[in-house]
């Protein structure tokens, strides 16, 4: 394809039907821009989703799209990727879709390292069913199904992904469009399963749940961007930093900050992932973990090629007239 596509080319003709002010609009906007920049033709792109507010996403992309059933997008996408590894396959999911009903499929997609880009819109609430606590809601979250406060301990999506042997783990937020674009481009460039948690504000049922991370006045003080090969520096004036002490992360001055390396063991990334609800520490965004590993869908197809090379492409005659045959006259 020689024609250059623009962001507009990735917009479908469907009316977008998220609530006014929903963080999903920002994500859609960024994804459409990122797709145009990737240089992949929209006919070679597929968006696969499950069920939930986020899962309406494919209808708004003028690419191939499959709005599947609750929690199963990773499984459908695995079949799609295995059947055609040349398609740029994206999964759009939410905290309920990915971590409640679809937790099993998510785990297996990640450990298999299927070549997909997965965006988990985390708003710590069930939106489409009107505001029940989700598997990422903090304990004590009060909703109609938890009137005395939720008692379930939440998942940390990044810890989960790292525990599944993910090869690319990152986090971004709906209010920082440039950051989101950078992270999504890195995810798309990674060969294998790219897991991106996107903090996404649900304006109706959980407004402000990532307020500290969004508020321009304090966000630089409350979050740190993990940029591969750069110092872990944060603060309103970039005056603070993070460094390692034993296996633990501690605060320090910007001058003493350590350089972030996401390509090593997952332990460092795991330690970083646990800072998300620590009031003393900045909450990390950015790229937590990137390693190379065998890509599932490529390996699946390589085995087919190897089998054909070794045995020759099977014919129906060989298939049916196989083993010990005898003639009856």
């Amino acid at each position: 394809m020689s024609e250059t596509l623009t962001k507009k080319d990735f917009k479908s003709n469907q009316d977008v039907r998220w609530c006014p002010g929903c963080g999903d609009y920002a994500i859609l906007n960024v994804v459409q821009g990122v797709c145009a920049e990737l240089g992949v033709h929209k006919d070679n792109v597929a968006f696969v989703s499950g069920i939930g507010c986020s899962s309406r996403f494919p209808y708004y992309m003028d690419t191939y799209g499959f709005h599947t059933i609750h929690g199963r997008a990773p499984a459908v996408a695995t079949g799609l990727a295995a059947a055609n590894p040349d398609i740029s396959t994206w999964i759009v999911t939410g905290d309920g879709d990915a971590l409640s009903i679809g937790g099993n499929h998510l785990a297996h997609l990640l450990r298999r390292n299927v070549n997909v880009n997965l965006m988990l819109f985390n708003n710590e609430i069930y939106g489409l069913t009107k505001g029940q606590y989700s598997p990422t809601s903090p304990v004590t979250t009060r909703t109609k199904t938890s009137p005395m406060g939720s008692i379930d301990r939440p998942f940390n999506p990044l810890s989960f992904a790292l525990g599944c042997n993910s090869t690319f783990v990152a986090r971004t937020i709906d209010t920082n469009l440039k950051h989101m674009a950078r992270i999504l481009k890195a995810a798309a460039a990674h060969k294998g399963a790219s897991f991106v948690e996107i903090y996404q504000n649900c304006v109706i049922f959980n407004d402000g749940c990532f307020g500290e991370m969004s508020d321009k006045k304090i966000r630089d003080d409350r979050s740190v961007d993990l940029i591969p090969g750069e110092k872990m520096v944060y603060g309103n004036d970039g005056e603070k930093g993070l460094r390692w002490e034993g296996g633990a992360i501690v605060r320090c001055s910007a001058a003493d900050a350590a350089v972030w390396d996401p390509t090593g063991s997952a332990a460092a990334a795991f330690a970083m992932s646990t800072l998300d609800h620590d009031p003393e520490m900045p909450n990390p965004l950015g790229i937590f973990h990137v390693v190379d590993a065998v890509v599932y869908d490529e390996a699946v197809n390589r085995q087919l090629d190897e089998a054909v090379a070794k045995k020759g492409r099977g014919t129906l005659k060989d298939l049916i007239y196989a083993g010990e045959c005898w003639d009856v006259k």
Binding site: V48, I69, A75, T78, G79, A82, Q303, G312, R313, G314
Partner: peptide, 24 residues
């Protein structure tokens, strides 16, 4: 029978199995 270009995906459960087939 991979030399017939038959792909088999042993999935994580029955649901994933049918979903992968649908994706294919």
């Amino acid at each position: 029978h991979k030399h017939y270009r038959v792909t088999t995906l042993q999935m994580e459960d029955e649901i994933a199995a049918v979903c992968a087939a649908i994706g294919a």
